[in-house]
Design a binder for these strands. Structure first.
Length: 825
RNA sequence: GCCGAAGUGGCGGAAUGGUAGACGCGGCGGACUCAAAAUCCGCUGCCCGCGAGGGCGUGUGGGUUCGACUCCCUCCUUCGGCACCA
């Protein structure tokens, strides 16, 4: 609860019983049941499902209440809207709870879901609970396994012995994407490495397709940029340095470069310490030094490697390779500034034109050869820092005199003609490591057989159930590996003694296709029904936090494309539109227990009801920028709802203005302006200004009532439509007031009101009169006033005349209905 | 370091080339009340002025324009992402 709690308004109705009444009624009437055969056009609006941590906090409300309002708005626009909810129920916290509290992950998770389901229901959302999914249940994860096998059959899932990122604290392998600044994303422990046999999905096959966002309707540019950076496509060339003189099995050393134009400037070669050829390229004299260096590098965590960022280290291997451009001998070194997993794991050192290479060469006394001369220079000068800009080729044989742009093309063509290299591109993106040495996840449906090798579990034997009895001591091995009843199994091919794969799947596997399962949540014969997928998917509007920009969202895109390729889907983008909400903070600071500013939504819902909390969260600021919770602010919404309630409870028959009185016309105009504004704002997720517009309408209604200038009819009309506008935002209150107006059919089944632009048009506007750009008067005029008339009226004003005294109007800028600027200079 | 977003009253924010500060919070004054709370009404960017009115004002400095919170450039700050990527 936020600290200073202002005195609360007393509400004119009992929000708790109103909430309860309508939530019950809607459930009884099946108001949120979504039918596949509904003839209206479909709209699939999805909010990222929560992890069942045990409590629906204010952040969940901030994510879900506005998206619910948007889904409701779409429904009022005439769509058959699907807006489902479920739980992302596998994952580490359940297992950590098991380790710490001795509760079984299943029990812990399902208990949390039970509680959260109740909390979510209190929001009054349109979720169709018949479609709920819970990923940790066999009816869901069975299909994870089935999908894994489809990928396996298609060659998209493979097993590789690879150095894996290891968190010594969580005792588990992490995906590269789960590492932040060299530390475990969840616990912050610096990571190390471990060699393990792991399952990967070939997301890199889809790198270019994932770069292509042409199938996406509307995503924030920011997210697309992040994905582009994450994929990290670089254009360049793979250059082959000859090593045949060493008499090894490998005759060449390939190296990727984005700067093939600098090839004549190579003065050394650097291999990553983990590079597979380091050992064979080391001379006997250097062996001890190199082995020591490699061992040291491997022992370092990423954080330590990064902390040495400024000070380059490395040792020579004692051998050299041949530069294909000029036949020069290039000494080979190993240094940890080259990283094994990127490109070829080797860097051609061009100290003159790359700062890292420059630092390295300077430290170890290696030659620095300028091959790109800055404009207006001969390239003879000694460099203080690497020159990385454009220039003219020098010291580059036949290529001298070219611009380096042209030189790059020419050298690449030269290499390609002579087999010395090839133009290519490389990616930062790596394959998706899906293996987890954990219990609480989907068992990977594979059996390892000494005779047959890797054997998929036959599809009719799915699901491979997670055994209930498990030992959760974190030993670095999956608890499943210690469960003999689970591990030992007959090989489906030869019947011999096989062993089950004991790794489980990354939970991002679950969330990569969950949007499809909502469509066929209870189907036990297939993961989704193709007809239902065709009818509903892809998701029209997805909302959630931007923290999923490069993991979940990219995996889901990859899944969709891969599933299309194995023939399971007819589309290749899962989410057509994406909107990221910001974060809710309290009293200007991030919510935290130590600050004592944690807002518990349940406490507010219990006294103010769901609608005030919903509305306040939407009013507090633009949704994508987040908001600052204050108890005073939410009280403002309570006050507004009180006024709304009060206005509704008045008997309009006492109003005796005429239907065409100024009050009536003004009220009607404001009503139609509000309809238009609310429509446009809800369409664009601008809830805060939509609510402000409705407040303005309420304020006007109040004024018109006081003045008694409107007709009962104009008043009643405003009152009725106002409530329809409010329905998506405050569903309970609006339904209650709607019923009190004597309406029978739910307000939530009404169409969004259609406004009339003519009725919304202003009768008079304020014309701003400026002299040299400074406001000198404001005049009420007809909107269609002509320029000449405007000038005449403006020039008659005393204050305008005063400021024009002794000056000559040389120019007049007239914006009809807005402004007249008289320019004198 | 690179990429991206943002910077507006006491506070949350509105306005995307045309009246800066909608709407809400807070504050001040008033009504109601024995009193307080709640509620209702009025005022509320800063400075000068009795007033009419004037000046200043959207992180900084410049530019474009009749006119700039809005477009362009410089710098500063905050937040998010990436980072020895060859």
């Amino acid at each position: 609860m936020a600290q200073q709690r202002t005195r609360q308004s007393e509400l004119r109705w009992d929000p708790v019983s109103v909430d309860r009444k309508w939530q019950r009624r809607w459930a009884d009437d099946g108001l949120h049941t979504v039918r596949d055969d509904d003839p209206r056009p479909k709209w699939y609006e999805l909010t990222m499902y929560p992890y069942p941590s045990g409590d629906v906090h204010i952040g969940h409300w901030y994510a879900m209440a506005p998206s619910d309002a948007h889904a409701r708005f779409r429904r009022m626009q005439g769509y058959n809207v699907l807006h489902p909810m479920g739980f992302d129920a596998f994952g580490l916290p359940a297992e950590n709870a098991a380790i710490r509290q001795g509760v079984h992950p299943h029990e812990w998770t399902m208990g949390n879901i039970e509680k959260m389901r109740g909390q979510l229901r209190s929001m009054g959302t349109v979720y169709d609970w018949d479609r709920e999914i819970v990923c940790c249940l066999p009816e869901y994860y069975k299909w994870n396994q089935w999908l894994f096998l489809q990928f396996y059959k298609a060659g998209l899932a493979y097993r590789a012995h690879a150095p894996a990122v290891w968190c010594p604290s969580c005792q588990t392998v992490l995906a590269n994407e789960q590492v932040l600044d060299g530390a475990c994303e969840r616990c912050g422990t610096p990571i190390t490495r471990r060699e393990l046999d792991q399952w990967f999905l070939k997301i890199t096959d889809y790198a270019d397709q994932l770069l292509d966002s042409s199938g996406i309707t509307d995503w924030p540019e920011r997210i697309l940029t992040m994905q582009r950076n994450w994929i990290g496509r670089s254009e360049g060339a793979e250059v082959v340095f000859d090593i045949s003189h060493l008499g090894l099995e490998e005759k060449s050393l390939p190296v990727f470069t984005t700067r093939v134009d600098t090839l004549f400037g190579v003065t050394f070669m650097v291999l990553a310490p983990e590079h597979p050829m380091v050992e064979s390229l080391t001379t006997p004299e250097q062996r001890a030094t190199v082995e020591a260096y490699v061992a040291e590098a491997r022992a370092k965590s990423d954080i330590e490697r990064m902390s040495t960022e400024r000070d380059k280290t490395g040792v020579p291997l004692g051998t050299y390779c041949i530069n294909p451009a000029n036949g020069q001998q290039v000494p080979i070194w190993t240094a940890d500034y080259a990283v094994a997993w990127y490109a070829t794991g080797a860097v051609m050192g061009v100290p003159a034109h790359d700062q890292r290479d420059f630092d390295f060469a300077t430290k170890f006394g290696l030659p620095i050869v300028t091959v790109i001369a800055p404009p207006g220079s001969t390239g003879e000068e000694t460099l203080e820092v690497a020159y990385t800009e454009a220039g003219t080729m020098v010291n580059s044989g036949d290529f001298n005199g070219m611009t380096n742009d042209r030189g790059a093309d020419a050298i690449a063509a030269y290499l390609e003609a002579r087999g010395g290299g090839v133009r290519t591109q490389t990616y930062r993106l790596r394959d998706w490591l899906v293996s987890r040495q954990r219990y609480w996840g989907t068992p990977i449906p594979i059996i390892h057989c000494p005779n047959c090798g890797t054997v998929p579990v036959p599809e009719d034997e799915l699901p491979v159930l997670l055994p209930e009895d498990a030992d959760f001591r974190p030993t670095g091995e999956s608890p499943l590996a210690r469960n003999e009843a689970f591990v030992n199994v007959a090989c489906p091919q030869c019947g011999g003694a096989g062993q089950r794969e004991t790794d489980t799947m990354d939970t991002f596997f679950d969330s990569s296709w969950y949007f499809l399962r909502y469509l066929s949540a209870k189907n036990d014969g297939e993961p989704w029904n193709p007809g239902q997928a065709d009818a509903w998917a892809p998701v029209d509007q997805y909302t959630g936090g931007a923290e999923h920009a490069v993991m979940h969202l990219m995996y889901a895109r990859f899944f969709t494309k891969a599933l299309r390729d194995v023939g399971l889907l007819n589309f290749d983008e899962p989410f057509l539109r994406l909107y990221n909400q910001g974060h809710i903070i309290a009293d200007g600071a991030k919510m935290s227990k130590s600050r004592g500013n944690v807002v518990a939504p349940d406490e507010y819902v219990a006294t103010l009801g769901a609608d005030i909390v919903r509305t306040y969260l939407m009013f507090v600021g633009p949704w994508d920028r987040g908001g600052d919770w204050s108890d005073g602010g939410i009280n403002g919404i309570a006050r507004w709802f009180n006024r709304v309630w009060d206005i509704w409870s008045r008997d309009p028959s006492g109003l005796n203005g005429s239907d065409n009185s100024e009050g009536s016309r003004e009220l009607r105009r404001k009503l139609h302006q509000t309809m238009r504004k609310v429509y446009q704002d809800l369409d664009a997720f601008k809830f805060n200004t939509a609510i402000a517009a409705m407040m303005e309408l309420t304020n006007l209604m109040q004024r018109v009532w006081e003045d008694n200038t409107a007709s009962a009819r104009a008043w009643s009309e405003a009152r009725k439509f106002m409530i329809v506008l409010l329905a998506p935002i405050a569903p309970h209150l609006s339904e209650e007031l709607w019923e009190q107006l004597g309406e029978r059919r739910s307000v939530h089944l009404q169409s969004f009101p259609e406004w009339d632009d003519d009725l919304a048009a202003e009768e008079t506007v304020t014309l701003v009169v400026q002299v040299d750009g400074r406001v000198r008067d404001r005049l009420p005029v007809a909107p269609d006033l002509g320029e000449d008339d405007a000038k005449e009226i403006a020039l008659a004003q005393a204050n305008v005349q005063r400021h024009l005294e002794g000056k000559e109007v040389t120019k007049a800028v007239y914006v009809p209905g807005r402004l007249l600027n008289l320019v004198t200079r």
